[in-house]
Design a protein around this nucleic acid. Structure first.
Lengths: 151, 151
DNA sequence: CTAAACCCCGTACCAAAGTACGGAGTCAAG
DNA sequence: CTTGACTCCGTACTTTGGTACGGGGTTTAG
C-alpha cells in the first residue's frame, strides 16, 4: 500500500509515464480508483503488474499475450484457466528448449575458438538452424487471432 | 544444394516472399549469386539462416540482435567473437531463468486450481511479479545502442 | 504565496517489422 | 505460343509498442 504517483510507479519499473498510460489504455493496467487529491495513486499490486509486463516483454511475449497471461489471474472459470495455463506452460517449455539449443551452439563457438586464433571459419550457427519441426503458436490455442505465419 | 526459388524458400520457412526480400534488404540474408535463368536460386545455407532467424525471433530477439548473432558465425576476430558470444550466453541464461519463474508460477496456478472449482480468486501471478532486481540489457553490452528503458 | 516539479488528457508523431500492390518480365505445361 | 504461376523491383501502407508535445491544473518546498 505504498502510495505512488504515476511518475514514481513508472520510475520504479524503469519505464516512462507515457508508457504506463499506454498500458492503461490497452487495459493491461487498471486505472486506479484511489486518489490523493486530484492525482491518482498506485500501490504494490499495480507495481507488481507493471514489473511482470516488462519482464514478459523481454521474453518475447506480445502485449496481447501478456494480457492473456494476466487474465488467468482473475479468471473465475477454473477449468478454463487450467487449460489455458497448461498451453502457456507448453509454450514456455518450448521456448526454453530453443534458447538452450542456441546457448549450446554459442558455447561450442566459444570452445571451438578457445585455443586457436586462426582465421579459419567456424560455422557453428549453421548446426543451429537445422530443420526444427516447424514451431506452431501454442499461444494462440484459445484464440486463433493475430499472427498468421503462413499465407 | 537443392535449388530453390525465393517462393519455395519462403514457403519452406513459413514466411512470405516479401519477408525474405525484406531480410535481404536488412542484410540478414545474402542476395545469392547463383541464378537459374533470370531467377535467383537459394540453397541449404540460406534456408538454414532463414529458419534460424525465425526461431530467434519468436524468442524475443530483434532483427538487429539476430544480425549480431549471425555475424558471430563469420567473425574472423576470434577474441572478439568469444567475448561477444559469452555476453549472448549470459543473456540467454537470464531469459531462461525468467521463463522458468513464469512456468513455476503457472504450474502453481494449475495445481492450486486442480481440486477446487471454487470461485475464490487465486492470485498466483502476483507472486511472479515480485521485485525482480531490475533486469539490465545484457545484450547491449558490446553496443550501447537501441533500447533505452530508462528516460 | 510563488516557483519548480509533477499530474491530466488529448492528439500527433515515431521506429521496427513486415504486408500489399502494381507493372513488367520469365518459365514451364499443355 | 499462349496461359497461369511465379519472379523482380519499387513504392506505399499497416500494426505494434511506444514517445513527444502542449496546454492546462495541482502540490509542496522554500
Amino acid at each position: 500500500m505504498n502510495n505512488l504517483t504515476i511518475g514514481a510507479l513508472a520510475r520504479a519499473a524503469g519505464v516512462g509515464v507515457e508508457t504506463v498510460r499506454y498500458y492503461q489504455r490497452r487495459g493491461l493496467l487498471p486505472e486506479p480508483q484511489s486518489r490523493k487529491g486530484a492525482f491518482r495513486t498506485y500501490g504494490d499490486a499495480e507495481s507488481a503488474r507493471l514489473h511482470f509486463i516488462r519482464r514478459a516483454q523481454t521474453l518475447g511475449f506480445s502485449l496481447d499475450e501478456i494480457s492473456e497471461l494476466l487474465d488467468l489471474d482473475e479468471m473465475t472459470d477454473r477449468e478454463n484457466a487450467r487449460v489455458f495455463a497448461k498451453a502457456k506452460i507448453a509454450d514456455i517449455e518450448s521456448r526454453v528448449r530453443q534458447l538452450e539449443e542456441i546457448r549450446t551452439a554459442l558455447e561450442s563457438l566459444v570452445r571451438c575458438c578457445e585455443h586457436s586464433d586462426a582465421e579459419t571459419p567456424c560455422p557453428i550457427l549453421h548446426a543451429l538452424a537445422t530443420p526444427q519441426p516447424q514451431l506452431q503458436p501454442a499461444l494462440a490455442a484459445a484464440k486463433p487471432a493475430s499472427r498468421k505465419t503462413g499465407r
